[in-house]
Amino acid sequence: MTNFKINFRESSNIQIIDLKGYLDAHTAPDFENAIQKIINNKQYNIIVNCKNLSYISSAGLGVFMAYIEEVRKNKGDIKITNMSSKIYNVFDILGFPLLYEIMNTEEDALKKFTKSI
């Protein structure tokens, strides 16, 4: 049963990952592989669009934590966009909004990236 999907896009040399469905301990390895694949290609400007993400547990949050330092050391960032309030609440409990750039829309994140490149 597949209840999680990842889609890759690119815009102005910025890598965009669309997450769809349920991100838990079962599906987190897929997300981890997706980020790793981008980093292996030496791409460090990443947007994770959560518009169609229905669920996240700490296993999913852990993937964001595992890669953000490496990405920032290479002058990039992981910006997270289009979260529902349900998803945002989970990030918020753990204090992620202080450490990650969480933006309302993908366009906002793209603008922020293009200003800093």
């Binding site: 547990s57 700490s58 296993a59 949050l61 852990g62 993937v63 934590m65 595992a66 890669y67 953000i68 330092e69 490496e70 753990l94 450490l99």
Partner: peptide, 11 residues
């Protein structure tokens, strides 16, 4: 956790 690339301990 971020500095040490740790991804556990949140649950």
């Amino acid at each position: 956790n971020l500095k040490n690339y740790k991804k556990g301990g949140l649950g």
